[in-house]
Design a protein around this nucleic acid. Structure first.
Length: 362
DNA sequence: TCTGGGGTCCTAGGACCC
DNA sequence: TCTGGGGTCCTAGGACCC
């Protein structure tokens, strides 16, 4: 492969059925069986299903109740996110050992910037082998000239895949696939595309951008035209700063009335502020989220003069918003959010001005 | 078969200021 | 007094991702 024509060389690492694979290491006797990581409540959904369970139609976000019916012989394991976070840190540490520039996306994914390396494919192969040797976990890797190509390539031959594609190679390979293959094109957009007679990425790529702009607007239209050709200029971002933090809960049974919700609101506020205080982060906008029994979701927010992470302020504001909203129907979910978090997550180190710069900075 | 929890980004409308 | 446009901030909803 001649990488000199690539604007950048990006690898996308995607851990295979991460939560299930981690659980199988703790319970090796379950290997080869359909295993489902899912909560236990009546409204729980599947977090991850093993490949054996997926054969029965059980996937992420399948309601657990339905998963039980589809695959009664499956072993159901409750999620242990603390443990998954710990194992994720091991994986990400390996990535950082191998490359300078990595962008971690969630617990089980990352992009690597391999631009400028002599042999990027060999480097990606080494990362895959190191993850396997050190953690015993399998991943799939995609290699391409952009994040988009790398991401789609990593998905193409899961599990344990390794796929390298050029931009044109990706266009060819996925021309007959659904546009839903592209991250960012979800069910709603797929449906809208179908209504215009577009069922494949090849058809999307062949649609005049003017038509797409007319149907989807001046931003989504051109975006669709670009991604259909696997054009993507985004670069690997090594630091991501969180802009909001929230806590929410879905009730096993709907709650009626503000009085029943207020204790929950206080508990959620307390959990949220505990984290914010620990991390010394503060936000100006406090919001609530209310999902009613008809699954309609409503948000209310209030922005304050000063950023805060104080429980009394967050809780009082959230309570005001809830009382003003005064849900008229049974409530299935309640959430609290603090947004507009200050940029600096870590306390700034006092930095001495370089010699001779003191006067200039005035 | 009624659909988790934690996020991001986009859109659209209104307030307000210049 | 009326009109217009642009920019920013805020709110609410929605699509989407892991």
């Amino acid at each position: 492969m001649d990488y000199s024509s690539w604007p950048q060389v990006v690898a996308h690492i995607d851990m295979d059925a991460f939560y299930v694979s981690v659980e199988l290491q703790r319970r090796p006797e379950l290997r080869g069986l359909p295993v489902v990581v899912a909560g236990t409540g009546p409204r729980a959904v599947v977090t991850t299903a093993s490949y054996e369970a997926r054969k029965f139609g059980v996937f992420s976000a399948t309601p657990a109740e339905r998963a039980r019916r589809l695959c009664p012989q499956a072993v159901f394991v409750p999620p242990d996110f603390e443990h998954y976070r710990e194992r994720s840190r091991e994986v990400m540490a390996i990535l950082h050992d191998h490359v300078d520039r990595a962008e971690v996306v969630g617990l089980d994914e990352a992009y690597l910037d391999l631009s400028g390396l002599e042999r990027p494919r060999a480097a990606a192969r080494r990362v895959k082998a190191a993850i396997r040797e050190t953690t015993g976990l399998a991943c799939s890797i995609g290699l391409g000239p952009s994040k988009l190509v790398a991401k789609v390539a990593s998905d193409a031959e899961k599990p344990d895949g390794f796929v390298e594609l050029t931009r044109a190679g990706a266009c060819d390979r996925f021309a007959g696939s659904s546009p839903g293959l592209i991250p960012g094109i979800g069910p709603k957009t797929v449906e809208r595309l179908t209504s215009h007679g577009i069922q494949t990425l090849g058809e999307l790529a062949g649609t005049p951008p003017s038509a797409l702009a007319a149907w989807f607007g001046h931003r989504l239209g051109p975006h669709l035209a670009r991604v259909a050709r696997f054009e993507d200029e985004r670069t690997v971002q090594t630091v991501r700063v969180a802009k909001s933090e929230s806590r929410e809960t879905t009730f096993d049974r709907d709650l009626n009335g503000v009085a029943a919700l207020e204790p929950v609101l206080e508990a959620l506020s307390a959990r949220l502020c505990e984290t914010l205080v620990k991390q010394e982060r503060r936000g100006r906008t406090i919001g609530i989220k209310v999902r009613l029994d008809d699954f309609s979701t409503h948000t209310r927010a209030r922005t304050r003069e000063q950023p805060t992470n104080e429980l009394s302020v967050v809780h009082e504001t959230a309570r005001e918003l809830l009382r003003e909203f005064d849900p008229s129907r049974p409530v299935r979910l309640l959430g609290v959010r603090v947004a507009g978090l200050d940029e600096e997550a870590v306390p700034r180190l006092p930095r001495a001005p370089a010699a001779g710069q003191l006067e200039l900075s005035l």
